[in-house]
């Protein structure tokens, strides 16, 4: 699939190449998850052009890359706010107060889960277990930075720090 208008930066491509190098030469597809992550980190979300570009770069069918992009839930197939907050609401976090944090986040931002504030500053998502339950409630900021021991006060401080 040709996507002449879409391009990733040289840095992003270097990162993808680093991932590709981890696998046997004929197994470039193994790097697709990382490549999609890197593309998303650079562009903010995964457009169809981004997915086609990554597929082409790795020599795999575009639909196979699309399958991957839609299977793993940290990929964003639609534009998100500058700050995506993914709150874990699974049972251990719930027991430790995630419900109150969720209510507070929604009230404070005026949006529900899966929504973005009109100013494009925040997107709120409901997440599944992040594997740090002892430190719950937890959230992820833009997929890669974890914040633990959330309380309504801690959330206020976090939101204020995010531009």
């Amino acid at each position: 699939m040709q996507t002449p208008e879409f391009q990733l930066s040289a840095e992003a491509l270097a990162q993808i190449d680093q991932e590709v190098a981890k696998y046997p030469a004929e197994q470039k597809q193994s790097a697709v998850m990382s490549a999609l992550r890197i593309a998303q980190a650079e562009k903010g979300w995964l457009s169809k052009d981004a997915i086609a570009y990554v597929a082409d770069y790795l020599g795999m069918p575009a639909i196979a890359a699309y399958e991957v992009a839609t299977f793993y839930n940290m990929y964003d197939l639609e534009p998100v706010g500058r700050n995506k907050i993914t709150l874990c609401t699974n049972l251990p976090c719930q027991l430790q107060g995630a419900d109150k944090v969720a209510e507070h986040l929604q009230a404070r931002l005026g949006i529900g889960f899966g929504e973005t504030t009109p100013d494009g500053r925040y997107t709120l998502k409901e997440g599944e277990c992040m594997g740090a339950c002892g430190h719950g409630p937890l959230c992820l900021h833009n997929n890669h930075k974890m914040h633990a021991h959330l309380t309504p006060d801690a959330v206020d401080k976090l939101l204020d720090d995010l531009k």
């Binding site: 699939m1 169809k48 086609a52 069918p61 575009a62 639909i63 196979a64 699309y66 399958e67 839609t70 299977f71």
Partner: peptide, 15 residues
Amino acid sequence: GMAHRGEHTEVMPFL
């Protein structure tokens, strides 16, 4: 391909 997962899995072409 079969995009998405679980109950939301759908057979589809690339977009």
